[in-house]
């Protein structure tokens, strides 16, 4: 009979927040970093909504609205920045930007070799129209013959 209690929602919010933080700290793709940050915001939003329900105060929901607003602004600016950075270095990797280190420090580089890179997926290609598909000439001719 009793609904899922306040603390359950708080737990969910905390987990989302922590996951977002871990993602922000580890992932090197700038876009995923930003998605992680947004996930942290989602965790906070869950908390606020739960409090609003529990306290019977819509202020919590209004705060979430403001979070939405700020998140939208943040996303717009972040995307703009990411695009700009991408134009400079042709990479979304945050680790290419480490010029602000101490002058006598060597740049951090990836030492460990990656395992075999996954093979690019072999998509089915359609035969371009009006061009003879290569390598099938003989069989065709053979069949004709």
């Amino acid at each position: 009979m009793s609904p899922a209690t306040l603390e359950s929602y708080l737990v969910v919010g905390a987990v989302l927040f922590a996951l977002g933080m871990v993602g922000f700290l580890t992932r090197r793709n700038m876009i995923i970093m930003f998605l992680s940050a947004e996930m942290m915001l989602q965790g906070v939003a869950v908390n606020l909504v739960a409090f609003a329900r529990f306290r019977g105060d819509l202020g919590g929901q209004v705060l979430v609205l403001f979070i939405l607003t700020v998140a939208a602004c943040e996303a717009a600016l972040a995307l703009a920045f990411i695009l700009m950075l991408y134009k400079r270095r042709k990479s979304l990797d945050i680790s290419v930007w480490q010029e602000l280190r101490e002058p006598d420090q060597d740049p951090v580089q990836d030492e460990e070799p990656l395992p075999d890179a996954p093979k690019p997926e072999d998509f089915q290609h359609l035969t371009p129209a009006g061009v003879q598909p290569p390598g099938k000439e003989e069989t065709q001719e053979g069949s004709h013959a």
Binding site: L19, L25, T26, R27, N29, D93
Partner: peptide, 17 residues
């Protein structure tokens, strides 16, 4: 990309989180 297959300090970051 290459970078997407690596993490920055996975142990420390997960620990902190």
């Amino acid at each position: 990309s290459n970078a997407d297959q690596r993490s920055r300090e996975p142990f420390l970051a997960s620990l902190a989180g």
